[in-house]
Amino acid sequence: MHSIPLSYYLILSVIIFLIGSIGVLTRRNAIIIFMCIELMLNAVNLTLVGFSRFSGDQAGQIMVLMVMTVAAAEAAVGLAIVLSLFRNKETVYLDEVNLMKW
């Protein structure tokens, strides 16, 4: 049944998480940064499901449901914020959003 060992899931999720965080740090488009953050959250979901499957404990899968719900709420708020920024400034590129710095 457990033909694929747990470590495969963990390594894959580390790789996806790293791709996501590198994307957040290097890209400048707010929407793409947000997509990279979603990628990070899904890497976490993979870890949770993997651990849950191999330990037989259901709590991890419940947590995945919570994460997906919260991520949906976050997406709604995040896109609204991007929209209100675009209305005032006509850009979604963060390097053009630089009123405040010291």
Partner: peptide, 30 residues
């Protein structure tokens, strides 16, 4: 615009940090 800028910076960095927090939780859970 100032307030928009604060919101978008807070949102993106806050969600980024939530990702780390959550990954930590997942590893401890496992």
């Amino acid at each position: 615009v100032r307030s928009n800028e604060a919101a978008i910076k807070y949102f993106l960095l806050g969600a980024f940090a939530s990702g780390f927090l959550l990954y930590g939780m997942a590893l401890i859970y496992g």
